[in-house]
Design a protein around this nucleic acid. Sequence first.
DNA 1: GTCTATAAATCGATAGAC
DNA 2: GTCTATCGATTTATAGAC
Lengths: 215, 215
Amino acid sequence: MTPTRYDAPTMGITERKERQKAEMRDLILEAALRIIRDEGFAALTMRKIAEAIEYSPATIYLHFASRDDIALALVADGFAKLVAHMAPALHEEDLLARVEAIGRCYLDFAQREPETYRLIFMEDERFAAPIMLALKEADGNAGDTAFGFLLDTVQELIDRGIYRPLNAKAVAALLWSSLHGIAALKLSCSQYPFEGSILEPGALVMDILTRGLLA
Amino acid sequence: MTPTRYDAPTMGITERKERQKAEMRDLILEAALRIIRDEGFAALTMRKIAEAIEYSPATIYLHFASRDDIALALVADGFAKLVAHMAPALHEEDLLARVEAIGRCYLDFAQREPETYRLIFMEDERFAAPIMLALKEADGNAGDTAFGFLLDTVQELIDRGIYRPLNAKAVAALLWSSLHGIAALKLSCSQYPFEGSILEPGALVMDILTRGLLA
DNA sequence: GTCTATAAATCGATAGAC
DNA sequence: GTCTATCGATTTATAGAC
């Protein structure tokens, strides 16, 4: 309760502690993502994370309440990464080029961050569902989420008579699922007959679909 | 070693034993599939299977060497089910109608046997990969597997000038991945914006793709 | 903050009685 | 053929020392 001359330095200590806490959080999440990539989601255990970051398992519980809590954080961070990865497509003025860019950015994310993509769209939806729902409900103009952005673009293409007069939501879902099919098969089916980058089959499917969608 | 008068009845006993063994095998696999459907593949344990069939865990090991062995059998049986489910499409004479029927049968299987579809195309490929590989290598005329049948049909459509002159394998893969995208999102993403049967978005995507593929 | 130690639960698989 | 009993390993999560 007695006033001290060290008020200012104390503020600096608080900030340093917060910074260190955030660093530890990132350290844990990065290690978790590495384990998922190498051994799959089922192999993600607190002990393995602890070993990877060279701390005891108990320490992790100072930053995350449970294993599920870590998975939830990975999904939330992953979603932010996906939205950030779509940024280049946002600035594309030409509508047809924008749809093409959306597809390319989406598949590029899937193959650059396969663990994250798996976690969001292919794994136990127990973690992804609440986060997708929260993002959707927070999205007033329906354009901040990745799907909302695609939907708006498709709607405009239809309104301008460039696409045939189909249901915009159905068309957006169709584009999404076609891209997801490529990403998902590449990530979990060794018999998928494309060897290299999925951008190649991605461009093909976008081309064929566009031909079928044009008025 | 001494001959007996009961040779014939003994044969009947052997057959009954084989029949009972096969019944027990089916009982175990059906219970396993039910558990996977209700709780996911990770929740499949020997103890849960034992409880479901009302036998002790030890009994299961008389029919299967391990948990992995059960998963492998489920995938093998599941593949046979898928191929059998595609039969109606096989008899379709018109090539375009056949492609459409292949897509419809494929998605119908995915939504009628979601656990099996998951296990084959969406889960740990450790079990599916060896079986898909064995089927592929045993397939001399490349038409017995589901994908081989689709590939042959696409090749014929291109040869006859109905489809544009594209690479048949790429087109077959494109059709497959587009259908898989619908099935996979429906099975593991609660935000996929189609409520009812996936045959509806399936028909739409096949229609758009066909328009884009026609010469 | 970070650790050691451990509780409590659950798993696959097996040995041996009957 | 089926069971009981159990081994041994692995897990999450926590309590308490420092």
